[in-house]
Each structure stands twice: as structure tokens, then as C-alpha cells.
Design a protein around this nucleic acid. Structure first.
Lengths: 191, 191
DNA sequence: CTAAAAAAGCGTAACAGCTCAACTTTCTGA
DNA sequence: TCAGAAAGTTGAGCTGTTACGCTTTTTTAG
């Protein structure tokens, strides 16, 4: 790795670190991009060269490849396991794995939960994989790739993680969401 | 109705009309708010006084009360009809009723479909009623008002209309979405 | 090896949507 | 009638974001 790329990566990391620190200290809406750029000793233009998707992207630095994991969860699920069950397990595992990996991950989640713009951005990051996931589901079920039912299942499954954030018990809430997707609405009229 | 309120309503209408005309003529992103304000012969600040939710709100002027209709669809559904079925019928009826009411409604829908910012805004308008609808569903099923399953059903049902836009056959697509919510994912592995 | 040219970082200035403090106009009621 | 409250309007200015040009580094050609 050349000297140039190393400096580039260092600048990018300095920007992301400064942003996360300032955001958690004073709140997302109270910190401007010029201030973040100053803290990393670069100009605002440079910040946007490193993060073309804008201010929100500063928080979601690590862009791991979730798409492959999602498609694999559908394709390589064990016999007898339904598609919703496979996605459910995959999303649960992903979440707990991340919580245990980085101690700062809690602050990270709290920041996202309390900032509408970041929740929206997180949702859109998940939904970027909607098309690929829908295609994998359709292929598995022997339906055309743009089948609306498959698209709906992919869409709802990808939205589930964002939807259950803020619940008192997110894991149980996720159970309920995937129970709905797997078995349908089973509620009957009270009394 | 006093002279003052009439003038206010006239200004608001002039703004909405100018916006819709300019947007359909040249595209949403090609028209600035200052230009719209000029066309209505007011300043940009005045525009935001009339539409505090911003540029997108100019397009969704008529703010009919859908919340009551949604809650009523759940509460007053005929015996034997499930909650998803009731919501499905209600959303279908709402759509066709609007298409037949105003001939300009087609242009309106096309504008929304081709503008990501407007699609997002439409989605958020629907989701404003998520809490009320979830509470109505929970009440009907005898569950606590913040039950995650009820919240998920409300959320997915409200997102359905936006999700099926752009499909080749939106009505059939809506059938598939509500089949998923009513009966769960029934697909089995191909071959 | 060196000069040129291609690429990439960087800052200035600007434009977009949007808000704030102040000024005018219109309505109210004693 | 006429203060003063309420509502409407405005120009200046803030924030996220981008286009343009300048400088620096890297690659390439002879």
C-alpha cells in the first residue's frame, strides 16, 4: 500500500473519528460539517470528497458487505427452514455479533436511535439490498425476479431491524415481526 | 370567513398551483423555492410560513384525514373479515376513488413516482398514522397498545401503497402484499 | 532520467433549502 | 377611535453540498 493511499485512509479515519466524537458529545444536529472538517484539519470540500454521500455517511464508516450474507442466508439455509426463518436467524446473529465486537457500538446505536436523519439513512442502507434479496428469494421459489410478493418479503425483512429499534425488548420484537411474515396475521377479535 | 383568511388561503393556493405547474413542466429538482415564491409574487420566507414542512409539502396540498378512515376500517369491518383484509379493501378503494375524482391526478402520481424525494415524503405521510393504526389493531386484538406485532402490521400495511407504485400491475401487487401479511410466506423451494 | 501529462487533494466561492429577527399590515375590543 | 395583539411578510444569514480552478503527487513517454 503506497504512501498516498495510507495518508488518504488516515484522513478518512480522522474525519470519521472526529464526527463520531463530536456527535456523541453535543448531538448530531448541533455539529456542522465545517467544524468536523476543522477538527480533522481539512477543508469541508475534502470531507465531501471522502464521504460523497454526505453528513450521515460519516457515522456509518465501516461498510461491510451485508448483501452477500443476506443472499447466502436464503440460498444456503438448511433443509426444512423457511426463508423468513433463515433471514430472522441471520439478522439476529448479525446484531449480537456486532454488539460483542466493539464496546463503542452501544453509543453508536444510541446516537442512531435518537437522530431521525440517521435512522432514515440506516434504513436506506439496508434497503439498498432489497433488489438483490428479492431476486434471491424469487430464484429460490421459482418465481420471476420482479415478483411483487418476493419484493415485499425482502422489503419487510430488511426494514425489520430498523423497525424494532427502540422497543423495550428488540429481540422479542424481531420475533414478532418475523412471526407475522412467516405465518401471517393470526390475531382474532377480542371479547 | 374574514378577508384575512381568504387572502391567506389564496396565497397558499397560488403557491401550491405554481409549484405543481412548474414541477410538472420542468421537473422537481429543476425548480427552486425562490422561483415558486416569485411566481406567486411572495418572498421565499412567506412560502415556508405557509408550508413549514418544506418543498415537498407543496405537492401534497390537500391533507385529507386518512387516519380516521384507517381506524374505522379496522373497527367497523364486517364479521368474519380479518384486519389485513379490511385494510386491503380500504386502500384499494381510496386509490380508485382518487383516480376517478380528479383528472390531474395522473400527472400528480407520475410526478411522485419519478421523484425520489416525493416518494419518501409520501411514505412518511402514510407512516404518520402508524401509531394510531397500531393502537386500533391492538385494541381490536386485545393486546397492549405498543405491541410490536401490531406495530409491524400497521407499518407494513401503510407502506404497501408506496411499495406497489411502479409495478406493472399495482392492484395485483397489492393483493400479493396483503396475501403475505394475511397468510404469511407460503413459498417453497423450487425443484 | 526527465519532462509532460494525467490524477488526486485542496480551498474559494457559490447555490440549494431553510430559519431568524425585525418590520408592516390587519384585526380586536374597550 | 385607537392602542396593541396577532398574523403576514421580508431581507439577511445559516447549513449542507457542489462546481471550478489551483497545487501537488503519481504515472507515463521519449
Amino acid at each position: 500500500m503506497g504512501r498516498r493511499e495510507r495518508k488518504k485512509a488516515a484522513t478518512r479515519q480522522a474525519l470519521a473519528d472526529a464526527a463520531l466524537r463530536l456527535f456523541t458529545e453535543r448531538g448530531y444536529d448541533e455539529v456542522g460539517v465545517r467544524e468536523i472538517a476543522d477538527a480533522a484539519d481539512v477543508s469541508a470540500t475534502t470531507l465531501f470528497k471522502h464521504f460523497p454521500d454526505g453528513k450521515e455517511a460519516l457515522v456509518f464508516d465501516q461498510d461491510v458487505d451485508r448483501e452477500a450474507a443476506l443472499v447466502a442466508a436464503v440460498r444456503e439455509r438448511p433443509t426444512g427452514q423457511s426463508v423468513p426463518q433463515a433471514l430472522h436467524r441471520m439478522l439476529l446473529g448479525e446484531h449480537s455479533r456486532r454488539v460483542h465486537a466493539d464496546p463503542r457500538f452501544d453509543d453508536f446505536l444510541r446516537l442512531i436511535d435518537t437522530t431521525p436523519a440517521l435512522r432514515e439513512y440506516a434504513r436506506r442502507m439496508w434497503l439498498r439490498h432489497e433488489y438483490a434479496l428479492a431476486a434471491a428469494i424469487a430464484d429460490d421459489a421459482g418465481l420471476p425476479a420482479d415478483d411483487p410478493g418476493c419484493r415485499a418479503l425482502a422489503h419487510f425483512a430488511l426494514e425489520a431491524p430498523v423497525l424494532v429499534r427502540g422497543s423495550r425488548d428488540p429481540d422479542t420484537a424481531l420475533d414478532r415481526v418475523f412471526d407475522l411474515l412467516g405465518n401471517g396475521w393470526t390475531g382474532t377479535r377480542a371479547d
